[in-house]
Nucleic acid binder design. Structure first.
Length: 224
DNA sequence: TATTGATCATAT
DNA sequence: ATATGATCAATA
């Protein structure tokens, strides 16, 4: 694979999809080499690397901001690990949650809705015994939630955010939500973030994030 | 073995 | 400290 120069961000959805499609069939090892990035031996130390390689290769321009990866296009980039049956091996992180702000949050202006409005899914071949450098990039596809999907995403979001707004952090387990769920999102279980308790008084709890259940994303990749 | 809760890397 | 990129690993 030729060395990849860091290109300008794509100017259109078609151009983005074209660039992503050109990566299909390549391995992450080839991509890493073209970008002059070393893949760590220890899998624990390469979490998130597939996504970061794709961001670099496709010239995503959000650079860590809480916005879609391609800001001008409003398109979010998501890699998704698929097993040999074509099913997602993991849930998909969507965004972190500002726990103290949820009393005044609305679905219409939520980060979840903005990020999921338009997504470029890039499948990554994945199996426990397949080393990261050997995993192949699959055929990218653009997706937006159907009206029915968005209705349920919204229901989940409003229910989950409702619990946060009421300070009911005991109810914030990953068991809740049909498509969306809330799970810890922190360096370790001892981290705390400012929030409000049931009485509205300042408190602190484990930082959380929104995730899409694998059961949901499985439906986006045909063979469910 | 599917799911939940915990964790690892990088950048601002 | 908070955001991004996720997957690891213990549990049910």
């Amino acid at each position: 694979m030729q060395a990849l120069e860091i290109e300008r961000p794509p100017r259109s959805e078609a151009e983005l999809l074209e660039r992503a499609s050109a990566l299909a069939g390549r391995t992450l090892g080839e991509l890493a080499q073209a970008l002059a990035i070393t893949i760590p031996e220890d899998p624990r130390r390469s979490k998130g690397l597939a996504g970061r390689l794709l961001e670099r290769a496709l010239a995503a321009d959000a650079h860590g901001a809480p916005e879609p990866d391609f800001r001008q296009l409003g398109i979010e980039l998501k890699s998704i690990p698929l097993d040999r049956r074509g099913r997602p091996r993991e849930s998909t992180f969507v965004c972190s949650i500002r726990l103290a702000d949820m009393e005044t949050a609305y679905w219409e202006s939520s980060r979840v809705r903005r990020k999921l409005a338009r997504v470029l899914w890039v499948p990554i071949e994945s199996a426990p015994d397949l080393p990261l450098p050997n995993r192949r990039i699959g055929a990218a596809r653009i997706w937006s939630p159907s009206p029915e999907q968005e209705r349920i995403l919204r229901e989940d979001w409003e229910t989950l955010v409702g619990h946060i707004a009421c300070g009911e952090f005991e109810n914030l387990t990953a068991h809740r939500g049909r498509y969306l769920q809330i799970r810890p999102k922190a360096a370790h279980a001892g981290i705390r973030e400012r929030a409000h308790d049931e009485a509205g008084a300042p408190t602190a709890t484990l930082p959380r994030g929104f995730y899409l259940r694998a059961r949901f994303t499985a439906g986006l990749f045909g063979d469910s």
